[in-house]
Design a protein around this nucleic acid. Structure first.
Lengths: 226, 226
DNA sequence: AAGAAAACTGGACCTCGGTCCGTTTAGGAT
DNA sequence: ATCCTAAACGGACCGAGGTCCAGTTTTCTT
């Protein structure tokens, strides 16, 4: 959605297909029934590739996920991997897609306090904690998937999280610049930061969790929980 | 300071030199008179390389700064560039070193409100604004120099900024987890975020500045300025 | 069923960051 | 002045990400 423009612009008469890539359709709420419907062989190869990548991670860690290795392990050519996922980041993101989608479903339509029904502050608190633990779980993958700085904030799942946070904030502090406030809050949940704090500084997750609650309290001007 | 360990560990009997690199000595306050004192030729080449890199940026933008191109432009071998700066990030960082050092001198010993003498809250506000404008100026370089997520928070200049921020916070809200609070605040000043907000969302710097002041007010529980 | 367009495939190829190691040189000691 | 050694040098080399395009397969149309 950022490259599509210039990509198709650069090949006037030729195959004209291009603009491949995996549609990380996330912003839609429920499970979208309208899969982009890949061609049968393409869908099969996509599945194989994801499976191969997962296996490689299990065996050699994220660093072992070489585009060539994945291709080989899946029994396809390298070009196929790139056509499907765009680049390495795209492949790794695809691996994270499921958990991202789950999280999203949870805060959009799941049970309170994460989902609708609870007061906004509580939802916000729950959101941070949920993200925190999910990130801690998949930290390596998240770090590796971290796109170049220019794209970080454009990824659909990031956008969705940001939109949701902004919306919650607007219910709590309607007069603030909730857009910026949301960015700040989410910054606290950045995988790189979590990595630094937990693995390099040795902080336990509980402290980060407390820090989140405190942060929410300060930023929204509400009381800390309990 | 993170690699030194394992690097020297991997070459037992050999040249044993290694652990090359540019000492980004930043944490020392004044200008350190004890340069690591490179050999004459090394110092000359270092200067040439930085100059060449600067020229390349001016001509082709940051993307034009290829290690090989820099080496060629400086009339040295590629190995020399790596020996001096470790990797591309190191080279780019070195380019930023001067402005980083200036900023640091300013908040450590410059005139108020940035330097000592003003109330801590004012210093904190001034700090954010200063960082904001410096980042906006050197945004491309900062983005390109952004190290892999694992190292981001270990860089000396980042550490220094963090330490200083923590210290200021401790004077304002002694009972808070100032370490985490500082991380949050600094997260707001992350180049990637600034890039996103100003260039992708089209926000003017003034809004970011206001956002910073508001954030400081909320986090420290003080009043917004004016 | 046949034909054509669209989509997909695979691997040769390119670039660039990073490593290695045999050679050269600075500069202190004798 | 000479020697000696640690330091610096440079460019061949390697691996990985990413591009390209000629050839193949699927799917749609008639």
């Amino acid at each position: 959605m950022l490259y599509a423009g210039f990509m198709s612009a650069t090949l006037p008469p030729f195959p004209k297909s291009q603009e491949p890539f995996d549609p990380p359709r996330l912003l839609e709420v429920g499970s979208a029934p309208d899969e982009p419907c890949l061609r049968a062989d393409a869908a099969r190869n996509r599945a194989r590739l994801l499976e191969a990548a997962t296996r490689l991670i299990a065996e050699h860690g994220v660093a072992g996920v070489t585009m060539e290795a994945v291709a080989a392990a899946a029994g396809v050519g390298k070009g196929t991997v790139f056509r499907r996922f765009g680049d390495r980041t795209g492949l790794l993101m695809a691996l994270l897609d499921h958990s991202a989608h789950t999280l999203q479903a949870d805060f959009l339509g799941g049970p309170p306090p994460l989902g609708p029904g609870a007061p906004a502050v509580d939802r916000l608190r729950a959101l941070g904690v949920a993200v925190l633990y999910r990130s801690a779980e998949q930290l390596d993958l998240l770090l590796a998937a971290q796109a170049e700085p220019t794209r970080r904030h454009s990824h659909p799942s990031t956008r969705a999280l940001h939109m949701h946070t902004t919306m919650l904030l607007r219910q709590i502090v309607p007069d603030a610049d909730c857009d910026l406030l949301a960015q700040t809050l989410l910054g606290y949940l950045d995988p790189a930061l979590i990595h630094h704090l937990t693995r390099q500084c040795g902080m336990p997750l509980e402290r980060l969790e407390a820090g989140w609650n405190d942060l929410v309290a300060r930023v929204t001007g509400t009381d800390a929980p309990h």
